[in-house]
Amino acid sequence: MNSATPRWTRKDLLGLRELSAEEINLVLETADAFKQVGTRDVKKVPALQGKTLINLFVEPSTRTRTSFELAAKRLSADIVNISAAASSLTKGETLKDTARVLEANHADIIVLRHGSAGAPQFLATRISASIINAGDGAHEHPTQGLLDLYTIREKRGSVAGLHVAIIGDILFSRVARSNIFALLKMGARVTLVGPSTLVPRDFEQLGVTVSHKLDEVLPTADVVNLLRIQHERQRKEYFPGIGEYIRLFGLTKKRAELLKPDCLIMHPGPVNRGVEIDSELADGPRSVILDQVTNGLAVRMAVLYLCAGVARP
């Protein structure tokens, strides 16, 4: 890194709203180096040797937890996984007490997935370990936002000037919020598409365009990011049913004909094949869904390294 590179001064990664474009770039550049590590025979570096990382997943997750676990192992950290079902949280212990117990066990990093928006902020102001937000309620999922940016940048060279359409359940999506904050900072144009109940007009105040007509948005999109329709947890008032959702907002093969030939198709997973996206498109040449997963590892290594791997002021 040359002297012009900004220094990372944060102990925590709570969200992308508070990061500057320079800080985001620093994470992405750091991730470049770690991505290269992943192609070696020996995929392990000693950057977090001797550090202890706790994956505290109060809300269930497989892919994010696995990604963080692999990232930590490749950085040589010691890692413990705690899931809500197996923790004292089910016995009525407060989050604060749980975290203090972890800290008393000398945890250096706590990766927190929690159903409550703001839970990482809550911990970060109360304990000295690094807090990495792995998704809090409908608030933020910063490493997902960063890996999405990384993937766009990797495929298209830059994020600035691109038109990114985020499609689906925006209201309840932490992925959408982290993407919106980061994409706007990096100079992209963002359109949110979905039913009016899940993409309320209030979002326009964040600086994005809101549309309820997918066919009008697709032809100018450089990236479409499809969010999971979480119909298992949604009350029925939000939309009449999956059939109607697909009719209005599903990325079908026919609709995909409207896309530019080089438009990237993204999805944070897990995919509902045939709902948000046609199954063949998810596996097609424009899909970068698996690149997102691979890049997620590099980005998470970068985040852990920056927050806990180097001496902080």
């Binding site: 928006a117 809090d136 309620g137 409908a138 608030h139 933020e140 932490r174 209030d202 009350r235």
Partner: peptide, 17 residues
Amino acid sequence: VANGLVHEGYWSTLLGL
């Protein structure tokens, strides 16, 4: 109101509450 916690508007949208 359902499970509403904070005024529905800019900040609830931003914070995902």
